[in-house]
Simulated scan of single mutants.
Amino acid sequence: MKLVVVSAGLSVPSSTRLLGDRLAAAAVGQAVDSVEVEVVELRDLAVEIAHHFTNGFPGRQLAAAIDAVTSADGLIVVTPVFSASYSGLFKSFFDVIEKDALAGLPVLIAATGGTARHSLVLEHALRPLFAHLRAVVVPTGVYAASEDWGAEGLDGRIGRAAGELAGLMQGLSGVRAVADDLAVVPFAEQLTALNSPSGV
């Protein structure tokens, strides 16, 4: 199985990347099957992401990153908090991925920030984004504020979330193809069918 970590950290070293690495290690440790981990650093793709918006084509590195994410068996996404939400770079990367490409994919959401006051970013920003993309978001998200590093509780949250992701990866492997076959009928089309004599 392949697990991909998407890190939107900008600094080197990055607490965002560190959290992603710890989550990946915990997921690998709890998985029954062998897991290959690949890390996508969005910092290195910023220029190609911007060019994609203007010319409609991904560069070589961006295309490889998109392929890694869309072919993964599980995904860990980690973003720093900017203006009480995910970073623009993080959102831009997922904006250039084809619609429905993440349908049925198990995703663990995580974020880092300078204060615990931003911890709800997981629920008001990240979870709705990946629900919209029809991914399967694990119940436990992980937020790490500056004071959480080395404090009690972070390891427990990492372990619980990683265990949920590992379980979904093993339980949902092979199910994504079924999810892709589900056709969504537009609401207007459904109303038209109800109003037509043949739809009665």
Rank of each mutant, 00 (worst) to 15 (best):
K2G: 00
V5Q: 00
V6M: 06
S7P: 13
A8R: 02
G9Y: 06
L10H: 05
L10Q: 07
V12H: 10
S15Y: 09
L18R: 15
R22P: 05
L23C: 03
L23H: 07
A25E: 15
A26I: 01
A27Y: 00
V28A: 11
V28M: 08
G29W: 00
Q30D: 02
V32W: 02
D33W: 10
D33H: 13
S34A: 15
V35N: 02
E36K: 07
V37E: 06
V39E: 12
V40Y: 04
E41K: 09
E41I: 07
L42G: 04
D44A: 15
L45F: 12
A46N: 11
A46G: 11
A50M: 13
F53I: 12
T54Y: 08
N55G: 03
G56S: 09
G56Y: 07
F57W: 10
P58D: 07
Q61R: 15
A65E: 08
A65C: 05
D67R: 14
V69E: 05
T70C: 04
A72W: 02
D73Y: 01
V77M: 04
V78K: 10
T79G: 06
T79S: 15
F82N: 08
A84M: 14
S85H: 05
S85E: 05
Y86H: 01
F90T: 02
S92R: 08
D95K: 01
V96K: 13
V96R: 13
I97N: 09
D100L: 11
P106Y: 03
P106K: 07
P106G: 00
A111M: 03
G113V: 02
G113E: 05
G113C: 01
R117W: 03
A125M: 01
A125V: 09
L126Q: 10
R127G: 06
P128C: 05
P128R: 11
F130M: 03
F130Y: 08
H132M: 12
H132E: 13
V137A: 00
V138Y: 00
P139E: 12
T140F: 00
A145E: 05
E147I: 03
E147W: 07
W149E: 00
A151W: 00
L154H: 10
G156T: 14
I158Y: 09
A161T: 09
A161G: 12
A162Y: 04
G167K: 06
M169S: 02
A177R: 15
L182F: 13
V184K: 13
P186L: 06
A188M: 11
T192K: 13
A193R: 15
S196F: 00
S196K: 12
P197I: 06
P197N: 13
S198K: 14
G199L: 02
V200S: 14
